[in-house]
Design a protein around this nucleic acid. Structure first.
Lengths: 347, 347
DNA sequence: CGGATAATCTGAAACGTTGCAGATTTCAAT
DNA sequence: ATTGAAATCTGCAACGTTTCAGATTATCCG
């Protein structure tokens, strides 16, 4: 349109008005910068008319406070950091959580930044980074452990956070959790109601808090319905699908094989079913499987599967609300939510 | 441990040394702040020994430049913004892309911030926000369209970016794309080699660039192998799984039903197979399906499925490298990568 | 009318960083 | 010795914001 041809990557920029600042508004209104600043935040010592005038102008010219300025002056970053485990295999939940968080912070000044870490390295590292550099006002962590060094560290350093999953350290902090005790319980009850008596559990990895919840719910319900457990302990949903599949086949070839499975993850369930069929057995006839899932795919896979839904988007929303609440000064103990599973969906 | 009990949420904080700044180092070394600043960035007008001294001290006390300070002064944010469509259903790719990006920026000063938007709203909104507020040094966008207003806008405003998928506007910018033309082509060839002659394509949504690529590859290969197309145009992978399933059943009940499918997404493939079976037909006998997948699940679902893998983590890595490259001054035309699919995995 | 009080506004300083325009010192060439 | 250049270092100012400690004006009371 304009220019001679190769202007170089950055130069075609049209002449733009520089971004308006407080100074701009101050000049336009004839007021001092301080007054403008205070007027915009509705301070009591500014005249009503002045406030309206300033706010009108600000809106008209599309004023947006400069984040770096605010951050430098006040230390407030308006950032939430989501700490993610990069070498996780079960990834489906990540996007849902992110979407959930996004939705909640959409009409706040907050930004979401993703802070990855590798489980093989120091799990404290990302959290320490955030605290030391003050790069966020709040943190969300997942894969929570009963005695979670990250939660302890954040608490000690006064950094607001929320955990996905509970801890068990006698410390109070916001969390959101899915009631995995209830999940295992209703799963077992469902299987028992279908006449299944020898049940195996594919549990979460042992280190995480919800491992214990799941195992407890499973055990208590077994007891309640008078069924017995077929040990499947050596495996968890963190193992590769190949591994789960192989171990399932093994266990299904034994004479004392289970006639029911409870699976804590959808992907793992695919492997379990494959393993069952590798052993020449049939789902729904020889064995039933209750599985958690976070998106509605398992019924397409095998209609016979029994599923319980876990909503990770909701988790993201709750987690975001919790951190924001804590940052906003609410009592952490009031920011704890537990999502109870619905009934088993047998389709 | 210490204290009387209820100290309130923020107060347990141990007395911490304030974060070191340039001033701290200046004081410790007896130098001026400017000198320290310049020494840390290895400027030519600072003595060698001084540099070593300053850098040593900086490392010892764990100096980390204050991002707000840098940003305020220089405008450099050290942030990459990933613009995401929040009401996307096929989500599996999100986490992979994020992990890929994270991996690349891990040993750079960059942070990744996720900027969500709802497709129902103005797609230009998030991109405009980033440009207007200068909240990132570079942007990554997905769901790229042939004539993409976001890419055009970013280009016009001199904001470095990379697109996941190509555009077709005669403008040059970095991108990473999967070769969907090749995918459709080898899929068709594979089906033809298995004796399938009446093929249907479950394509990407029409608005996106890779729709055309896929359709072209499909058509060209059909022509090459002398097979015919059974139109499946009214559906795309963006439809609900229920919808795809129903339409598949319909088409499979027709007398001129297809004996082969090419599917552009794994989740959709589940629905296609369900639809096929709803119609009383059998995968591998009556019909074969070639599907793209991004994680290795489809073979667990039905071993008969033919799959081609698309690596979204790689995409994330390439996209991150591209934006960083552009920010770093590289020629955009040198930052375009195309990922060619491997052979069809028949297992 | 003096003096207090309230209401409203304001400049200066500071947060941490970097670019600019010197300042100081050293040393070689004249 | 004088000049000049090179090498090395440094104050100051500015980025945009908020807090602090007033300043100014208007209003009210006795």
């Amino acid at each position: 349109m304009r220019g001679t041809g190769r202007e170089g990557q950055m130069s075609e920029r049209t002449v733009e008005a520089p971004r308006p600042t407080l100074k701009t508004i101050a000049f336009m209104t004839g007021l001092g910068v301080t007054t403008v600043s205070r007027a915009l935040k509705d301070a009591p010592d500014i005249g009503e008319e002045t406030k309206r005038r300033v706010q009108l102008v600000a809106r008209q010219i599309g004023y947006r406070p400069n984040r770096a300025g605010v951050r430098l002056r006040t230390g407030k970053t308006n950032v939430i950091s989501l700490v993610l485990d990069t070498d996780q295999q079960i990834m489906s939940f990540v996007s849902d959580i992110i979407y959930g968080i996004s939705e909640v912070i959409a009409d706040t000044p907050y930004h979401l930044i993703v802070t990855p870490y590798s489980r093989s390295r120091d799990p404290l590292e990302p959290v320490r980074y955030v605290v030391e550099t003050g790069s966020a006002d709040g943190v969300i962590i997942s894969r929570t452990q009963p005695n979670d060094p990250r939660a302890r560290y954040l608490l000690e350093h006064g950094m607001p956070f929320a955990t996905h999953g509970r801890t068990d350290m006698g410390l109070v902090h916001p969390f959101h959790d899915f009631d995995n005790y209830a999940f295992a319980q209703i799963a077992v009850r469902q299987l028992a109601a279908m006449g299944r008596r020898r049940l195996a559990l594919l549990a979460p990895p042992t280190g995480l808090t919800y491992y214990a919840h799941t195992v407890d719910g499973f055990a208590d319900a077994l007891n309640e319905v008078g069924a017995t457990e077929v040990s499947f302990n050596a495996v968890s949903i963190d193992h590769t699908l190949e591994h789960i599949r192989g171990r399932t086949t093994q266990i299904m070839r034994r004479s004392d094989r289970p006639d029911g499975f409870v699976s804590s993850a959808a992907a793992a369930t695919l492997a379990i079913v494959a393993g069952i069929e590798d052993a020449g057995l049939k789902l729904g006839r020889d064995v039933d499987v209750v599985s958690k899932q976070s998106s509605d795919l398992l019924h397409l896979f095998r209609p016979e599967l029994l599923v319980v839904n876990e909503d990770f988007r909701l988790a993201g929303e709750e987690l975001a609300r919790s951190v924001l609440g804590w940052i906003g000064g609410k009592d952490p103990s009031s920011l704890q939510t537990l999502s109870v599973p619905g009934a088993v969906d047998t389709r």
